[in-house]
Design a protein around this nucleic acid. Structure first.
Length: 707
RNA sequence: AGCGGGAUGGGAUAGCCAGGAGAUUCCGGCGGGCUCAUAACCCGCAGACCGGUAGUUCAAAUCUACCUCCCGCUACCA
């Protein structure tokens, strides 16, 4: 690793965390991919040789589970999403040099090769561990196929992490009281040999690695804590079919013995595989992937902050162990909030990629918003109001206006670039912007990259105002030509500097100036070279967003958040997990009538299943809100035999004072759960989003069973 | 509860990591200018005791400790 400034003499690769092939892309994803794209473009503008790669993450249990639910093959399921992503990114001018996926041949081979190397180097050992097994389904239960109790905090947890409690990553076999998510039955633990990667061996190496790591500070600091707490060896195999086979285990025909690599092993290797695919396509003379990954290239990872651990602990350890080059930088982006509240796919509180495209907005507007609204590491709020303000104020008012007035003036009076030299003042100002841009790139600061451009445009506006060329054309034509010459140069410079963020708009300007080729290929020095002598009449490059439009958009957003409500899903997992239903929800979110109602379930259940539900008439004795929770109330409900404490999400929807004395309907044999530290022993039935409380019509006795 | 981020003029933000003239930019407000330009653009004014307390220091928004309050992720499923 080296701390030479960009541009370096070496090839660089910029990668983005792989999107998990399991759901629609939204503005939160886009932030990372636009960020990576803009950064890669900015490096190229500096003159840095750069490849920008990523790919879809196809493996893992969520894909397997969701594919199974839909009754399709996991490969088919994941590939569908993969293709959708491939089509979506270009719509946002996110142009990967290569976009592959983890299930392709390149990645499969490379993954096995790297694991084999790690094995040969002695970093992998086999150990028997207890693996959850479902006797009914006759299969082992990796990761999210199993639920249970967290051994550290006692909360309910998934097989791979304590998602509700302490957030710890759980290794296979750690979860207590395992139950199968396939059948719901208790699972048993069986001994199985699994492979472990000796991450613990790399503690010293990783500490040193982090000292030199560039990027955002959270990526550097967060893992230090983990290292201090002591690194655990990492179980890198799983008992399932879907995934890349453990090397040497390929020919296994016995279904019982399927051992595939854990998804987090092959996922980052896709960075290398994708780079390799790119190099093979353009020729290794053009781009030497092996130099980048095995020798001295500059490797830059752009990721979401939720996967810092994988990129600063597991991944560099794997690279080091397998004899590969270490990353130079890990830049972890913050999250996106919507109107100040957390983005939630399950509640449809999101701006979907497709939705933005359908609204007909130019991609560069969103790119500008996402890259310049907050620092890379900061969480950024998205609202249509702020979007409008930024577009109208900065892009239309400052940049677009300056471009248009300069070129139009130049066209009308000189039919292009006036014949004069750029003034000393303007030359220096542009050089200042170049420096600002270079520093910004070296700080991984995209917002500052944007500011270098917009502030230069602002200077242009000041400059033209101050010199009033419209007053000079008659009296001092030479002076007027000089001023406009300067403005045209500034306009061009702004275009080159803005290209990483608004590539399409910059290209439009480029063409208006009569330049050949692509502005994307222009380096910073171009900012000081004269545009062609003649160009045509320019047009306006940015349009204002009207207030009515914003009002409409706000309304739509509110509607679809309300339509999704809280009901649609019970396992409301964030981001990628259970997005299968979200996909359809977002498609018809604007529909009227029955769109608001949950569709009827196709599956019928038998009477016996119904008998399993012990539903009782109860009477609410007390009701009070739970502090810190928006909706939850703690109720005490008399069900004849006893009084149960129940937590219900009805706090805001009912006047709690009126509830005591009311009859209610309670599912008595519901598994107890703890919500906000309060135990809930049963479940109150209520209808819909408004949680309209179910009660009895007549004089049913307290404790009577509902049949 | 765990982890992370934040608290700076009316709103939104920069600065803090490498302490030093009472502090950035954008929006908004007020006043003025210009008319080449998408009622754009330019200039000026008002407005902040930089969350609280205690330290370190000649000097703190910037470092340390404690506190309060926000926000995000996961749980507000019932």
């Amino acid at each position: 690793m080296s701390n030479d400034e960009f541009p370096t003499e070496r090839p660089a690769v910029v990668t983005c965390g792989l999107p998990y092939a399991n759901g629609d892309l939204h503005v939160g994803h886009l932030r990372t991919y636009v960020g990576g794209d803009a950064f890669a473009r900015a490096l190229e503008t500096l003159g840095q040789e750069t490849a920008y790669v990523s790919g879809s993450d196809m493996h893992g249990t969520p894909v397997a589970v969701n594919a199974e639910q839909e009754g399709v093959d996991p490969a088919e399921f994941a590939l569908d999403w993969h293709e959708q992503y491939e089509e979506t990114f270009p719509k946002f001018n996110v142009e990967f040099d290569n976009y592959g996926h983890t299930h392709d041949e390149t990645n499969t081979e490379l993954t096995q090769e790297i694991v084999r190397t790690l094995d040969e180097e002695g970093y992998i050992y086999e150990k028997e561990i207890q693996v959850a097994y479902d006797p009914d389904a006759d299969q082992y239960l990796p990761d999210r196929y199993v639920e249970g109790t967290c051994p550290y905090c006692g909360e309910k947890a998934r097989g791979d992490e304590c998602d509700e409690g302490c957030q710890r990553h759980l290794e296979p076999g750690e979860v207590e009281d395992p139950t199968s998510t396939i059948t719901g039955n208790p699972a048993e633990y069986r001994k199985r040999p699994h492979k472990f990667f000796e991450v613990s061996e790399f503690a010293d190496y990783l500490t040193e690695f982090l000292d030199g790591l560039e990027g955002t500070s959270n990526a550097r600091n967060q893992p230090r804590q983990w290292i201090e707490d002591g690194l655990q060896d990492w179980c890198i195999t799983r008992d399932m079919d879907w995934g890349i086979n453990y090397p040497g285990d390929e020919d296994d025909t016995e279904t019982d013995d399927d051992l595939v690599l854990y998804v987090w092993v092959d996922a980052p290797i896709e960075y290398i595989a994708s780079t390799k695919q790119y190099a093979e396509r353009v020729g290794t003379d053009e781009y030497d992937w092996e130099r980048v990954w095995k020798e001295d290239g500059d490797i830059i990872h752009i990721i979401g902050r939720d996967i810092i651990q994988h990129h600063t602990i597991f991944w560099p350890a794997m690279l080091e162990g397998a004899g590969y080059n270490a990353p130079r930088a890990v830049a972890a982006t913050g999250f996106i909030t919507i109107n100040g509240k957390g983005l939630s796919t399950s509640r449809n509180r999101a701006i979907w990629a497709k939705e933005y495209v359908d609204e007909g907005f130019h991609p560069d507007l969103l790119r500008y918003y996402l890259t310049t609204t907050g620092g890379l590491q900061q969480d950024v709020d998205f609202s249509w109001d702020a979007f409008q303000e930024k577009v109208n104020g900065e892009l239309v008012g400052t940049v677009g206006n300056f471009w248009y007035r300069s070129l139009l003036f130049a066209y009308r009076n000189y039919e292009g670039t006036p014949e004069a030299d750029v003034s000393e003042e303007v030359r220096e100002r542009i050089e200042g912007a170049i420096g600002q841009n270079r520093d910004a790139v070296n700080d991984y600061d995209l917002r500052e990259v944007g500011r270098a451009a917009t502030q230069l445009a602002q200077f242009g506006n000041e400059y033209i105002q101050r010199n009033e060329p419209w007053k000079l054309t008659d009296e001092e034509p030479e002076r007027a030509a000089q001023v406009i010459r300067d403005c045209v140069q500034i306009a061009k410079a702004v275009g080159v500097l803005l290209e990483p963020i608004a590539p399409d708009k910059a290209q439009n300007l480029w063409e208006q100036l009569g330049e050949d080729g692509s502005v994307a290929d222009a380096h910073l020095e171009e900012t000081l070279e004269a545009p062609p002598r003649n160009f045509d009449e320019p047009g306006e490059l940015f349009e204002k967003i009207e207030d009515e439009r914003v009002a409409e958009l706000n309304e739509k957003l509110e509607e679809h958040v309300a339509a999704a409500g809280d009901d649609g899903k019970s396992e409301a997992d964030a981001e990628t997990e259970t997005d299968d239903t979200d996909a359809s929800e977002s498609d018809d979110m604007a529909d009227e009538d029955t769109a608001d109602l949950e569709p009827l379930l196709e599956d019928r259940i038998g009477f016996e299943d119904f008998q399993d539900l012990d539903i009782r008439v109860g009477r609410i004795e007390t009701a009070d809100g739970i502090e810190g929770a928006d909706d939850l109330a703690r109720l005490e409900v008399d069900i004849g035999f006893e009084t149960r404490q129940v937590v219900a999400g009805i706090k805001q929807l009912h006047d709690l004072d009126e509830l005591p004395g009311t009859n209610c309907v309670l599912l008595a044999n519901m598994e107890p759960a703890e919500l906000f530290g309060v135990e809930s022993n049963g479940m109150i039935l209520a209808a819909g989003e408004e949680a309209d409380l179910l009660t009895t019509h007549g004089d049913a006795e307290i404790g009577e069973k509902i049949k």
